[in-house]
């Protein structure tokens, strides 16, 4: 029973961290229309910054804030040239950026290369509780962080600033005609989304307590996109719903695929599961591109 409960805590933590990660993506794509296919890069930057700083005995809160700042800084590096380009080029450039970053993390010494980093301090470890209890407390911490970010993004989206973002998504020319500096608004949305992803990265590092470049492959970005378009583009509740459905299906199917079925090995069944993600993405894009909670009008680029 306690093992099952611990498993459930892990499941929920995954849902919560991914929700946070997707809220960042949704701010960029759902609200502003930026096609960021390299979102995992900001998760990686956040996770590595936290892991390295905490290993060198930096206070945890400070390390997490630094992770968010460094992720935002990287997004400036990427966005400053890339945001001047048309939509599909942004997709290519961001995907390339994330791949190059992963290769770099795998080949430099301060990240320990493919061996990764582990054994750093984690939050709440000073509490005299069992490991299982710690997992539940950590889940609560992640949920609290995500709730705060959720509320902040909802507030921002309704502010005049958020309305300009939506205007940019709907029709850039109108936003320009109103005298708005589009590039600076886009850059701010990208950086804010990246900082949120960096925060999710920090939590990921604490959750796994060990990270290596393998944790940050392009598939993570596509999972985030699946969650976003499943739940609903331009809706923060969509991120929650998408994450619950996605990890629900993921967990159920991994129960089925944890041992060989008939002639098929577990590796084959794992591959089939990713085939399923691909097929779901395709079907959604054909029949309901706005997702479950999304409104068709919110797909600014899809008219």
């Amino acid at each position: 029973m306690s093992m099952l409960l611990g498993y459930f805590a892990g499941f929920l933590t995954n849902v919560v961290i991914y929700t946070l990660f997707v809220i960042g993506l949704n701010l960029q794509f759902g609200y502003t229309g930026l096609i960021n296919f390299g979102h995992v890069a900001f998760l990686a930057v956040g996770a590595y910054t936290v892991a390295i700083l905490v290993t060198h005995h930096a206070p945890i809160l400070l390390a997490v804030l630094a992770g968010m700042a460094v992720a935002a800084l990287f997004s400036f590096l990427l966005g400053y040239p890339a945001l001047r380009l048309r939509d599909d080029y942004l997709a290519i450039v961001t995907i390339g950026f994330a791949e190059v970053l992963r290769i770099w993390l795998n080949n430099v010494s301060f990240t320990n290369g493919p061996e990764g980093i582990g054994g750093f301090a984690v939050p709440l470890s000073w509490l005299p509780v069992s490991h299982d209890a710690w997992r539940w407390l950590f889940l609560l911490l992640c949920a609290a962080v995500t709730a705060v970010v959720f509320a902040a993004v909802e507030y921002l989206a309704r502010s005049p600033w958020g309305r300009v973002l939506k205007a940019i998504r709907e029709d850039e020319d109108v936003a320009v005609a109103l005298g708005k500096n589009i590039v600076s608004y886009k850059l701010a949305a990208l950086a804010l989304g990246a900082a949120i992803a960096g925060l999710a990265g920090g939590l990921t590092a604490f959750f796994y307590q060990y990270i290596n470049p393998h944790n940050f492959e392009a598939t993570i970005t596509f999972e985030a996109w699946t969650i976003m378009v499943l739940g609903g583009v331009g809706k923060n509740w969509g991120a929650v719903l998408g994450a619950v459905i996605y990890f629900g299906l993921y967990t159920i199917t991994s129960e089925f695929t944890s041992s060989p079925i008939g002639p098929f090995s577990t590796d084959q069944l794992a591959a089939l599961r990713i085939v399923l993600i691909g097929v779901v993405l395709i079907l959604l894009m054909i029949y309901r591109p706005q997702g479950i909670l999304g409104r068709k009008e919110d797909l600014g680029l899809d008219r």
Binding site: I35, W225, A271, G278, L281, P289, L299, L301
Partner: peptide
Amino acid sequence: SRMRRRQAGSVSFIVASIGLALALRNLIVF
């Protein structure tokens, strides 16, 4: 052709092509 008929936007096409990429690659793994 289905997406063209429904006048899907360029982003939907890109996301669907990523879905196809994942499906194809993992069918090969399978």
